[in-house]
Design a protein around this nucleic acid. Structure first.
Length: 585
DNA sequence: GCCGTTTTCGGCCCGACTGTTTTCAGTCG
């Protein structure tokens, strides 16, 4: 049983308790515990170790016992009993926006509705509108939400909505009444998956800004519109919320809406400890009445002009938005230990790009030109190897023709260089698609898995470790193989992969393609600790997709990486040596 | 159900918007 499976069970218990109308704080305890176990970074090798579980903040005696039972027997009596009280399909009703536990409970008790299909039927026959607390409008909204749900999941890859988000940002930035503009929320934290866009604007003319927003050409429909908050659906299908505040409120709102939730709770609790209350508008003294007798006089409230002032007010260094996940950033900010995160400008080159030779859409020359236009000093070409039939994998002959073409082109460049490589398939047994004699003639080798994806955890891990043990394999590409919102990771033991990478001197790719963003940011602190080096690659199949590097930078920052952790921050003069280091060991 | 540099009992983040109400409950973030 994995941590996330345990978290899913706790989450489900929370939902079922909500349906039962249980004490809201008990419900929150389960939801919190689910989050706690999922995000817990430390070692819990044994989920049956009740004592260790209980030490995780948010998990107490009762929940620790339940986790233990779950880990030991694979099931949980308490959950079985809860499930027995409701039809199984009822949980899917929670995926409809606008429906929460109270409404679902009413639908179930009054109309015996327990599935989306039944709900749609009841809406169409007008029975929902007749329920107390519901009405014609609510019924129509439910119909629309069901329709929306079938059109898209409500979750988007960061890259799918980045263009709209940036367009809105720049359009507001150019608006004369918008004094400050930022896209906050999970977008600003550079989460790989976002489900809405949070736009924040400081202004003296809220009505004008709101009007401009709901009338924007990217807006498909308006969901809600009030004096300080409006919500719309954009053309891509993503929901976008606008918050309008004053300039004085802006830094508080920016921090508040950048989140995440756990980060905000910690920030507020730090304010409370200093005798203040923090919300999205201001830092204010605590109300004097409540249990104030023993209390020492509240500290003077400092002036806050930007986010850095706010963090300073609670005795913290500034925390970059990407780190605001309550994932160790508070401890680091207290000890002046927030690293100087990598920036886009630090990247000097990149590897793992495709050309017309395999399944890319541009020539060597076009890829090189695009790389130079981005200010890069070098670009590594790595087309697919021969066994990738569907991706037009190249054979030995084509590969050497490309190497020759690259060597020839390099004579023309000034201050720029192409490196000749290959994206070599890792075969089922961990051997490589080309023999060492061929690989040794290349500047670098990207190794990756594209076949036999269903191997067991032990087999898949062993396969990758064996590939990394090859001295000519410079880097391991998209290590988990996940396709965001589409395909889960292969079954692999990532710490074992990282250990092998550290031992063999193999770089691990941070694949910057927005559908991958693999290796995931959550693993990079561990990778770094083990001494593993990162390489940020776009896996570009078109020249313009080299720009995906920007997504990779966001994830690298989110993974606490600095420029010294990322090999392709090395300048041209040093990267060549670094590429040879492993094979010369 | 969890938690404690205010507390082992009594809190637990809280504000915005909508729709159905006629002062508020429900949902969301």
């Amino acid at each position: 049983m994995t941590k996330s499976e345990v978290a899913a069970v706790l989450e489900e218990i929370g939902t079922l308790l909500e349906l039962k109308g249980e004490n809201p704080f008990k419900i929150r305890a389960y939801v919190n515990a689910a989050r706690a176990i999922e995000t817990f970074g430390g070692n819990i090798s044994d989920l049956q170790d009740e004592e260790a579980l209980g030490k995780i903040p948010g998990i107490g005696k009762s929940i620790a016992l339940k986790i233990k039972e779950l880990a030991a027997t694979g099931s949980l009596k308490y959950l079985q009993e809860l499930r027995a009280e409701f039809p199984a399909a009822i949980l899917e009703l929670f995926s409809i926006s606008g429906l929460g536990a109270k409404k679902i409970k009413a639908l179930y008790e009054k109309l015996q509705i327990s599935s989306i299909e039944q709900l749609l039927k009841a809406c169409e026959t007008g029975r929902v509108a007749e329920l107390p607390g519901f009405g014609e409008t609510t019924q129509a909204k439910i119909c629309k939400a069901i329709e929306e749900r079938t059109r898209h999941s409500g979750y988007f890859q960061f890259g799918q909505i980045a263009h709209e988000a940036e367009t809105l940002r720049s359009d507001f930035a150019a608006h004369p009444d918008a004094l400050h503009t930022e896209v906050a929320g999970s977008y600003r934290r550079r989460k790989e998956i976002v489900h809405d866009v949070d736009l924040l604007v400081a202004t003296k003319k809220p009505e004008t800004i709101t009007k401009f927003f709901v009338g924007h050409s990217l807006v498909e429909s308006v969901i809600a519109q009030g004096p300080t908050k409006s919500s719309v659906r954009l053309r891509s299908g993503v929901q976008c919320d606008l918050r309008v505040v004053s300039t004085a409120e802006y830094p508080f709102a920016l921090a508040y809406f950048t989140g995440n939730k756990e980060h905000n709770i910690e920030l507020r609790s730090r304010a409370l400890k200093r005798g203040w209350t923090l919300n999205e508008y201001r830092l204010a003294p605590l109300p004097v009445d409540a249990k104030a007798k023993k209390k020492k006089p509240a500290n003077k409230i400092p002036k806050v002009r930007d986010e850095a002032d706010l963090y300073r007010a609670v005795d913290l260094d500034f925390i970059p938005p990407e780190l605001r996940e309550n994932w160790g950033e508070f401890e680091a900010a207290e000890k002046n230990a927030i690293p100087k995160l990598i920036e886009k400008e630090n990247l000097r080159g990149t590897f793992h790009c495709h050309t017309l030779a395999s399944d890319g859409h541009n020539s060597l020359e076009e890829m090189a030109e695009a790389a130079q236009a981005l200010g890069l000093e070098y670009l590594g070409i790595a087309d697919h190897s021969r066994s990738q039939i569907q991706a037009h994998g190249i054979d030995e002959k084509k590969l050497f023709a490309q190497v020759a073409a690259i060597r020839k082109l390099n004579k023309k460049f000034d201050g720029f260089r192409l490196f000749a490589g290959v994206e070599c398939d890792i075969l089922r047994d961990g051997s490589l698609d080309f023999p060492d004699e061929i690989l040794s003639q290349l500047d670098f080798v990207v190794a990756s898995v594209h076949s036999a994806l269903g191997l067991s955890e032990a087999e898949m891990t062993g396969r990758m470790v064996r590939a990394m043990e090859n001295p000519f394999v410079t880097m391991l590409a998209h290590p988990t193989g996940r396709l965001l919102l589409k395909r889960e990771s292969y079954q692999i033991i990532i710490p074992a992969i990282l250990d092998a990478a550290a031992r063999t001197g193999t770089w691990i790719e941070l694949n910057a393609a927005p559908k991958r963003l693999d290796l995931d940011w959550r693993w990079w602190p561990m990778a770094k600790q083990k001494g593993v080096k990162c390489v940020i690659n776009p896996d570009a199949h078109r020249a313009e997709r080299l720009q995906d590097l920007w997504f990779g930078i966001g994830i690298a920052r989110k993974g606490w990486l600095t420029k010294t952790d990322v090999m392709n921050c090395l300048p041209l003069g040093k990267i060549e040596h670094a590429l040879r280091a492993k094979r010369e060991r």
